[in-house]
Design a protein around this nucleic acid. Structure first.
Lengths: 333, 333
DNA sequence: AATCAAATTGAAAACGTTTTCAGCTTGATA
DNA sequence: TATCAAGCTGAAAACGTTTTCAATTTGATT
C-alpha cells in the first residue's frame, strides 16, 4: 500500500558507510573524501533517497518553515505583500505556512499557537492591529516575528511599513491645493492604530497647515470593502465633501463608482486619492490617483529582515520605513 | 538565550505519570481515569506545556499540513480558490504550505519535492497545465493530490472544476444570439489543455451550432494580464470582431478598457463576456458579464476531497464538476 | 622509519513525540 | 471468595535525522 520509504540508514548500509557520513554528504559538509562522497551520492541516486525534513527538523531544531499571518489572501493589497514574502522566503530556502486571520484576534492567537507548535523558525504578521492578546503571544514566542504593512504603536516589534502619516498628509495637501475645502477622510476602523494614530494624524496635519478647521463629520469610518465604499456616496454628498483621501483601494473603487453612478463626475465634481496603488487603480475608470507604496518590497524586505533575525545576524534598524510616493492619475486634477 | 522548552517528559515527571499517559490526555484518548486526566491537565497548564508538532509528526507520520501550489497569489482568481482551501483546511485542523509556481514547470517540480520532503499529508495543485515532469512527480508522490481549477487531460487525477467547454459554448452562443457574427476568442496560452481542449472546443461548438465558420484569425492567444488585454484592441478591430469571450477577468478588464479608451462603446460597439466572475467584474465600468464559477467553493471542495483521500475514506466521484452560470451585466446587451 | 597534524570516519546519544504490548487495578458476577 | 473482563497505566521501542566526540587514516615532514 504505502510506497516503501528509504531512510538514511538504508543508504548508509548500501554505501557501506555510517549514517553520519551520509548526513554529511546530504548537507554538503566538506569533511568527506571525494571518493566517499561519490559512492554515497550514487547510492542516494540509485535508491532515490529523500531526506525526511520532519526528522531533520526534530534533530536540528530548524524547520526552514516560517509562518505568515494574513488578514485575507483575497485582498489584493495583502496578497501583493504575501508574494514578496514568498519569493524571498524561497530564495532563502524557506517555506511558508500561510493562514488567513480575518483580523480576528481569537483566530490570530490560535494560529500563532499552531505555528509555534509546528516549530516555525519565524513569523511574518500582517494586520491592521495588534490586540493585547496577540501581543502577549508575541512575547511568549521563542521565535522572531516581523510585522509587514502593520504598525506597532508601542514601537517594539521589528516592522516594515511606509510613513503613513506623511503620505496621507501629502495626499490631503494635494487635494486642498486643488481648491477643495471639504476633503473627506475615508478609512477602515479607527480602532486600528494605523488609521487612528497615523493616517488620521496626517490628515489633520494637512488641514492645520492649510488653516482649515477639522470637522469630524468629514471622517468616515467603515470597513475595507468595495460595497462599503459604494454605499458611502449619499453620506459624502450630505456633508458637502468634494474630495476624499481613502485608506484602501477596493474601498476607493467603491466610493468612486458610487459617486460616478450617482451621476457625478470624478474628478470634476469629486476628487479621490487612494492609498495602496494596487493594480486595481489602473483597471478602474477613471484611473485612481494614489499614494504609492512598494507593496511587493514591503513583503520582501520584511522576509529578508526575518531571515537575519533567524540567523542572529546583527540588524541595524529593526523598524524600517520604505519610501512612498504620490501617483497622479485621472481621479484628481 | 533560548527560552526553556518544556517537554512531555517534564510533564510526566511533575504529574507523576508516564509519557504515555500524558500523550493520551493531550490527544484526547478516552482511556484515562478522570482524576489522572485532571492531574495531568493541571501540570500542563502550570508548566505551559505545548506539544511539539515536529516530534509528533515524526512519531505519528502525520504532519497535519498540506501543500498548496498556486501560480500566483496575486491573481485574484487563484487567491479566491486559495481562500476556500485554507478555510476548509483550518476547519479540518490542517495548515497550508503555500507556494507560488508562476506556472513554471521546473519550479513546480522543485516545490513538489520540497513538499514531499516536508512530509505533507496531501497536496492541492492549481495551474493551467500539468507538464510531463510534473505528472511524473505526481506519480511518485506517496501522498494524495487534488487539482483545483486545473484540468487533467488524461483524466487520472482527482480534480475540481466547472465544465469549461459547456460554459464557453453558452457564453459564445449568447453573444451570437445578440447578432454578433464575429466573436473573438481571447485566451491564455493554447498550450494549456484547459484553453485548447476545453474552452476553445466550446467556442467552436457554439459557432458550429450557429452555422458560423470558424476563423482562426478571431482566436487570440496571449497571457493572462491586464496589460496584454489592453494592447489587444487594434488587433481586435482589424479583424472586425464585435464581441469577445475572454478567458480571464484581468485580461478582460484590459480588453474592455483598451476598447473603451479607443473611443468605442461597450457594449454597443463591442460586447464582452469574461470567465471567472471575480469581484473585478463589478468594479470595472461597465460591469462585465461573466461566466460564473463558484471560486471559493472550487477551493473548498478540493480541500474537502483531499481530506477524504488523506483519511482513506471512500470517494464516490474523484473528478467533480461544480455548476457554472452566466451572469449578465453591462458589457453585453 | 617515526612523528604529528589534519582529514576522514563511525558509534551512539540526542531530538520529543506516538504506539504497542504487557501488566496491574478495579468492580462486578458467579 | 474466586474469577474475569474491562479499564488504566507504564516501559520501551520506534520515527529518521543531526551532532558530538573519539578513533582511525592519511600524508607530509623529519
Amino acid at each position: 500500500m504505502d510506497k516503501q520509504t528509504v531512510t538514511i540508514y538504508d543508504v548508509a548500509r548500501e554505501a557501506d558507510v555510517s549514517m553520519a557520513t551520509v548526513s554529511r554528504v546530504v548537507n554538503g559538509n566538506p569533511n568527506v573524501k571525494p571518493a566517499t562522497r561519490k559512492k554515497v551520492l550514487d547510492v542516494i541516486e540509485r535508491l532515490d533517497y529523500r531526506p525526511n525534513a520532519v526528522a531533520r527538523g526534530l534533530a536540528s531544531k530548524k524547520t526552514t518553515t516560517v509562518g505568515v499571518i494574513i488578514p485575507d489572501v483575497t485582498n489584493i493589497y495583502f496578497s501583493a505583500l504575501a508574494r514578496g514574502i514568498d519569493d524571498i522566503a524561497m530564495m532563502y530556502k524557506y517555506n511558508i505556512i500561510l493562514t488567513n486571520s480575518d483580523e480576528n484576534g481569537r483566530k490570530e492567537v490560535q494560529v500563532l499557537n499552531t505555528l509555534m507548535a509546528k516549530q516555525v523558525d519565524g513569523i511574518v504578521f500582517m494586520g491592521n492591529d495588534i490586540s493585547d492578546e496577540v501581543r502577549k503571544e508575541f512575547e511568549r514566542a521563542k521565535t522572531p516575528i516581523v510585522l509587514a504593512g502593520c504598525v506597532d504603536d508601542q514601537d517594539q516589534m521589528p516592522s516594515v511599513n511606509i510613513d503613513y502619516t506623511a503620505a496621507v498628509e501629502e495626499a490631503t495637501k494635494n487635494l486642498i491645493d486643488h481648491g477643495n475645502e471639504r476633503v473627506a477622510f475615508v478609512s477602515g476602523s479607527l480602532d486600528y492604530p494605523i488609521n487612528r494614530d497615523y493616517r488620521l494624524k496626517g490628515y489633520k496635519q494637512a488641514l492645520k497647515k492649510a488653516g482649515l478647521r477639522y470637522d469630524d463629520k468629514l471622517v468616515f469610518e467603515t470597513d475595507y470593502s468595495y460595497k462599503a465604499g459604494q454605499l458611502l456616496q449619499p453620506a459624502l454628498q450630505s456633508v458637502k465633501a468634494t474630495a476624499a483621501v481613502i485608506g484602501d483601494d477596493e474601498l476607493a473603487a467603491g466610493v468612486m463608482n458610487g459617486v460616478t453612478d450617482a451621476g457625478l463626475s470624478v474628478p470634476d465634481d469629486f476628487e479621490i486619492i487612494t492609498s495602496n496603488d494596487t493594480k486595481l487603480t489602473e483597471m478602474v475608470r477613471p484611473k485612481m490617483s494614489s499614494i504609492t507604496q512598494p507593496l511587493y518590497d514591503i513583503g520582501a524586505v520584511a522576509m529578508r529582515l526575518l531571515t537575519k533575525l533567524m540567523n542572529n545576524e546583527p540588524v541595524e534598524n529593526k523598524t524600517v520605513l520604505l519610501p512612498y510616493g504620490l501617483m497622479k492619475r485621472a481621479s484628481t486634477h
